[in-house]
Design a protein around this nucleic acid. Sequence first.
DNA 1: AAAGGCATGTAAGGTGTTACATGATTGT
DNA 2: ACAATCATGTAACACCTTACATGCCTTT
Lengths: 197, 197
Amino acid sequence: MNRMKTPRPLTNLELALLGLIQQEPRAGYDLCKIFETTPMGHYSSSPGAIYPALKRLENRELLAGTVERAGSMRPRRVYSLTPSGLEELEAWASQAVTHEDLVWRSEELILRFSFMGQLVDRSIICRFLREVADGIDALLLGLEAHHGTMLDSRLPPGVLPTGRLALELGMESYQGLARWARRALAELADVELDDKG
Amino acid sequence: MNRMKTPRPLTNLELALLGLIQQEPRAGYDLCKIFETTPMGHYSSSPGAIYPALKRLENRELLAGTVERAGSMRPRRVYSLTPSGLEELEAWASQAVTHEDLVWRSEELILRFSFMGQLVDRSIICRFLREVADGIDALLLGLEAHHGTMLDSRLPPGVLPTGRLALELGMESYQGLARWARRALAELADVELDDKG
DNA sequence: AAAGGCATGTAAGGTGTTACATGATTGT
DNA sequence: ACAATCATGTAACACCTTACATGCCTTT
C-alpha cells in the first residue's frame, strides 16, 4: 500500500513560485524582481522569504535547480518544475472550491485562478467560476442573517454604525466577486466562439 | 527627553481584542466565542492564538485582568482596557490612511473602521473614508498601467487569459471599496441630519 | 454516570519579517 | 575608482497553527 506521510499543504508563496516557474525557468533574483514590480507582489515580500521557500520546494523535489556560472563564488541557480512539481500544480488548480476556501483562503483562490489558464483546460476553469459564484450565494445567506441582527441592535446615541458599514463592505465584496465570476464565465464562452470563428 | 524603545506594532488579532474589550470587559472564553460565531472570526482562529495575545497585551499594560473565582483551580480572568490601552486604540483609529495601508494592510483598515464608531468622532471617520476613496483613485492608475501591458501581451493559443481576469478582479475590488467609502460618507452625513431633526 | 459546554492554558513546529552580510558584474 | 545593480543567502525574532491537557459545572 502507498503509505507516506501527508506533506503539509503548500503556502501561498510556494504556490506563487511554482506557478511563475512553470511559465519559464527562473532564478531567485528573477522572482524577487517580479514580486517587487508587479501586482503579484501581493504574495510576497522579500528575499528572506523567497530563498528559503525555493530551498523547501527543491527538498520536496517539486523544483530542480541547475547552477549557471558554476565554480564562481556567486552561482546563479535557475529552477525548473520537476514532473511531480507540475503534477502537484495541476492537482492544485483542479481542486473543487470549498466553503473554507471562500471564507478563509480567498487569496489562494485568486492565485489559483490566475495560473489556471496555463495549467488546466477550459472546462475546469469554468467549473471553478461556477463554484465560486454559487458558493458565494450560500455564504451571503449567513452574512445577511448577521446583518439583520446588527440593524436591529440599537447603538448608544452619538455612536456611528461603523461596525454595520464594515459588514456591508464585506457582503458587497463577496457580491462583487460573484458578479466577476459570472462575467468571466461569459467572457470565456466568447473566447470559445472566437476560436471556432 | 522621553526616550523609550518603540514597541512593535500591534497585530490584527491584538487590535481586534482591544476593540472588543473596549466595548465591555470580557474574558478569553467570551472572545473565543465571538470569533467562532461572528464575521469578526475572520481575524482569528483559536484559543492557541488568543490567550497568548491577551497575555502580551497585559504585559504591555494595555489590558488589566481581574480574576473571578479566585482560589479555584480554573479562575476566570476578565480583561478591561487600561487608560493607556484606550489611548493606544484611539491613536490607532485616528491615524491617516497611507498608500501602504491600502496595498498591504487592507484587513487592518477594515478592522480599524469597524471600531471607529466607538472610538473617535464623526470628523475623523469622514476623513478616513475620504482618504480611502482618494487613495484608491491613485492606486488604480498604477494597476491600469499593468492592465494595459497585459492586454497587449499575446498569450499562446489555447491559453485562456486568467491572469488578466484576476488582475481585473483586483481592480474591481478596489473600485468597490472606493464606492463603498463614498456611499458610507453620504450615509453618515444623513445621520448627522437625523440627529439635528 | 456520562456527555457536553465552560474556561484556561502549553508545546512543537513552521513560516514570514526585518535586518544584515557577501561578493560579482556592469556602467560612468 | 565608484556606484548601482546583480545575486544569494543567514540569523534573530515573533507570530500563528495544530494538537493536546486540565478540570469545573450543568444537564440528561
